[in-house]
Design a protein around this nucleic acid. Sequence first.
RNA 1: AGGCUCGUAGCUCAGGGGUAGAGCACUACAUUGACACUGUAGGGGUCAGCGGUUCAAAUCCGCUCGAGCCUACCA
Length: 921
Amino acid sequence: MEIPKTYEPKDCEGRWYPFWEERGYFTPEINTNEDAPVFSIVIPPPNVTGYLHMGHALNHTLQDVLARWRRMAGDRVLWLPGTDHAGIATQMVVERQLDKEGITRHDLGREKFVERVWAWKEHSGGTIQKQMRVLGESVDWTRERFTMDDGLSNAVKEVFVRLYDEGLIYRGEYMVNWSPGLQTAISDLEVEMKSVKGNLWHIAYPIGKAVTERVEGLAEAYAAANEGEAKTGLLSTEAGDFIVVATTRPETMLGDSGVAFNPEDERYNSVKGKQAILPLVGRALPFIQDEVVEKGFGTGFVKVTPAHDPNDFAMGKRHGLEFIQVIGKTAKITDAAPEKYRGLSREAARKQIVAELDALGLLLKTEDYTHNVGHCQRSGTVVEPLISTQWFLKMTELAQPAIAAVRDGRTKFVPESSAKIYFNWLENIQDWCISRQLWWGHSIPAWFTPDGEIIVARAEVEARARLAAQGKDDTVELTPDTDVLDTWFSSQLWPFSTLGWPKETEDLRQFYPTSVLVTGFDIIFFWVARMMIMGLKFMGEVPFKTVYINALVLDPSGQKMSKSKGNVIDPLEVFDKYGTDAARFALTAASTAGLTLALQESKLESARNFANKIWNATRFVLMNCDDILESGEPLEWETEFAPPELADRWILSRLNQVALDANDALAEYRFHEAAALIYQFFWNDFCDWYIELSKPHVTAKEASPQSTAVKRRIIFILERSLRLLHPMMPFITEELWQRLPHQGESVSLAEFPQHNAAQLDGRAERELSVVIEIITKLRNLRATFGLSPALLLKAQIAPADEATREVIESMRDHIQRLARLESLELVETLSAKNGFVRAVVTGAELAVPLIGLIDFEQEKARLEKDLAKKAGELAGLEKRLNNADFIQRAAPDVVEATHAQAAKLKNQIFQLNVMKLTLDL
RNA sequence: AGGCUCGUAGCUCAGGGGUAGAGCACUACAUUGACACUGUAGGGGUCAGCGGUUCAAAUCCGCUCGAGCCUACCA
């Protein structure tokens, strides 16, 4: 059988996904064993507007590795796919479309607009699903969900109503983060703090009487009063008394309704009971005292704007100040401000106010000041804190069980340290503003009566029933609430809403709680914590037993990928260039415990080379084993490896060790370790040694019972290797596995190799390592002296004991061939003749007659170097052994091992010295 | 301002109480019958610095310096 010399991913990647999907391999029902353990994962639903980025590629690859591994290991596996309706993001996509058509959503009206979004979703929303198939993801498409589908919408209503009935959801007027760009309230998590260079303006407010014309000399007086250590915000001048406040947002002064200072700030006792007069407006402001104000910052006086600052809002509540909203929802000055400012933007008002204060002599100082300003994550506009009527979810009480569940280990974070992020947030949690003034999303299940009473219910019918139950008129007109819910309100139900909740479905019974959640650290607050809360609240059980936090993918230079930096790598281009399997393997192999993962070309190249190695190792077998392939019968080790030779016992032992270690590594989410183990086994053990040792028989022109046996064994090991590789590299392994003798219809369903203790063979591993060491040493000598590979050498070996002699004897042909020897003589002691180059390996000494072939000075130098290295090691060991404390306190086995190591080194040093002497003979 | 994480070979990173590993890069040699996306051999690190615990520290603890990330209502 002939196959191409180089692996071409495109030739086979396309064909296998439909094969798997059509045969239903990815549904849990493919596993008919009723006693099979269940393994379930719900995918973090990508935004329906989304396309696959590198973060997904990593996140999805790891989930697929787990799903395929557990499926092959015999579990009933469900990996449930789906997408999120992504309220704001999706609404914006469709609004941009409308914008191109020259209309706005308001032109369409709400109903038509929502229809339009659905239409968009149907036609353009499936990008990510297609890309998931390219990646080979073994998700169960028959159970795909969307956060706005009927089932999930019911779950949302159910949860809302129950939480409301329990008093955990409330509606009220509070200060929220208002996005003027999106025209909606947003949650704290959607606010992005950015460092902005601005100014801190120091402004004088007169006490008692208004300022109507320019006051001279205030700035100088302020500067003079604050020379050196002394600081004060109280100025007494001929023009009267002034206090000084500092602000980064002078435009908000239009809404000031008080001035605050710390109760312990004795500098300002004199102003108690007086009033400041707000410049430009003329409003009288009471002085209040509040702990929040720091004595040491600025002047110690703070202007209080209860309607436009969260702190001031709280102070306003505490002290009964007036709430004057001077900035509106479009970020323009409202009618509550003096007429001349009305309609100005925040920015224009700021400019004008600063200028006017300056003209009045009240602007005392302008400092450069860098501070953090909240920006709307989606629209980028500066968030305006506004008082608005919104729906909120009380979090503190709900958070407690979620904290407890991780503390007591019902849910485990991997890596463990990421739980700190989780605790930190939950322990300082604030109520969550869940309403949004958008059109795309889950409607809030609430209705208003003509009297303005709110009825929360699953449907209008129920709302009327609730009215009737309260003995009220249930025939009144009911107006539905027009707000929608924050997207995360539905996402937080994902682990159970997707399985059918609130119905008690079979899926829910079988797959909840899920086995593991694989996600990024950036949504621990947004999503993970909230799912924990809701899972515990409504299912009474954690939603997942493990949370695996995958790394953040960085660009090759270690920078965070971002559109603005232009360093975003498109995973599809990577799959295209290196092959999907190679990209998947590279990502898996790079998934260490670290928080970040820099995706470098060299890793991808290395993985591509690995795919090619797999291809060619199989190619070698296919090219030489037609006779065996024709029969097509599957191979079992019990029959094939009886009796095994040393190389067979060795490779079986290695295979089993790798199976053991790889299963352990995957069970503990040490992906890189599993990948490295399998890589090394396949390349180093199988290709470099086992195939090389088998070659003479495999390539023998004449078939013989022995060559048949060797070929069958090599095919067996190869077939098991492909199974080990399959979870990480599904396409190439399926392609090749199908060409080998096998049982079953797909490697996807073949058993993942488990270790068999009977095949772990430490003796075989030790014995073959002696052979490997001898061959390597002989090659080393050849390289050191620059001897051509064409030159066949004669060698003597003096084994240290009988057992080693037998091993070497049994492997004599292999050693001769792989070390390119003309003859190999096994002796008791090496000939102490001039012209022999000698070397030591574990368990044997070697000598090669090289007279006339090499420079003996060079050989001496080589021996000196070897001696020096070994002497250094010995010195270290002896220092330890001469230390009485070490002998007394160190573990006995460590002491013993140290003695043994020292003895071995002494012996080797002795031998090396003999060698040096022989050179001089 | 607090918190977290990380400083190990030229690069990217594993490891982790008993004097160090991988991939890539590098050097030499080989070569077209599995594979140049190859083979063979090799060079390269006082594990950031300083102190402490210990018989023993790259590994545990503290401090310093450097890098990154997260949280936060300093006007």
